[in-house]
């Protein structure tokens, strides 16, 4: 489903990704672990289409479509969803308004009819209930005054509502207490299905106790340096990243 070939990316003349290769299959949950500065967040932004990065080489294919030739909103309509590490606060835009605008923009881009308001509200309420999101939160400005845990749950709510085919979770566990971690993980797990792929980016093995990955990849200095099954995460937890840090500097 997602295939990244020899991806080379820089920002302001600083090379961040150095010929990264990665394949995530349909229905697979792939975890990426790695030390700070290894390029994990850059990878998530480049897949989602953030403009600050300069792609020097390589390709990112989603079901054969070259994402690098698409605008961020086109990528979203094609099925890409990035759950942000730091979800943004948007003063003055009610959460409901934002959710409806997003969903209908994607449907429009795919040539589907816009959802009626009652249908939309039904879907939002169902997704919100699963994630223990209070209804009054949906009336407030998006993420404004939300706690860290509420913001992350709101990201998962968006994911559930937009039904993407490929989900990227960028350090979704950061800033979460145990209860919030459980709620968020359950939200993700209910979305696991045969047609959907996940890329779970994390520093810590802890999240992977809740969202059990099919594959684990270790990233260092802008490329995948080791891949394995879920046991690789436990190995990293025990030994740390020392073996991989600066392994191929210069």
């Amino acid at each position: 489903m997602l295939q990244i070939n020899n991806l080379v990316v820089q920002i302001e003349d600083k090379r961040i990704l150095n010929g990264l290769n990665l394949t995530v299959n349909k229905g697979e949950v792939a975890a990426i672990m790695g030390p700070n500065g290894s390029g994990k967040s850059t990878l998530s932004y480049v897949i989602a289409g953030r403009e600050d990065y300069e792609v020097l080489d390589g390709e990112i294919l989603l079901d054969g479509q070259n994402l690098l030739e698409m605008e961020p909103d086109q990528r979203a309509a094609a099925g890409v969803f990035l759950a942000f590490q730091y979800p943004l606060e948007i003063p003055g835009v009610a959460t409901m308004t934002f959710l409806k605008a997003s969903l209908n923009a994607q449907r429009k881009a795919r040539g589907e009819a816009e959802l009626s308001t009652p249908d939309f509200i039904k879907r939002v309420n169902a997704a919100a209930a699963k994630l223990e999101i209070q209804k009054d939160m949906l009336k407030r400005a998006l993420n404004v005054g939300f706690s860290g845990g509420e913001k992350k749950r709101m990201e998962i709510l968006q994911m559930a509502l937009l039904e993407p085919t490929f989900c990227i979770l960028d350090e979704t566990d950061s800033g979460l207490d145990i209860d919030a971690l459980r709620i968020v993980s359950e939200g993700v797990n209910t979305l696991r299905e045969a047609g959907r792929g996940f890329l779970v980016i994390t520093h810590y093995q802890r999240l992977l106790n809740y969202i059990v990955p099919d594959t684990v990849h270790v990233m260092a200095s802008g490329r995948i340096v080791k891949s394995g099954g879920k046991e690789l995460a436990l190995e990293l937890e025990a030994n740390g990243y020392a073996d991989y840090r600066q392994s191929d500097a210069a």
Binding site: P87, I90, S102
Partner: peptide, 14 residues
Amino acid sequence: EDLLFYLRSRGLPL
């Protein structure tokens, strides 16, 4: 720019 990217990543055209 960050807010714009966030909204666009949810499917809203520029």
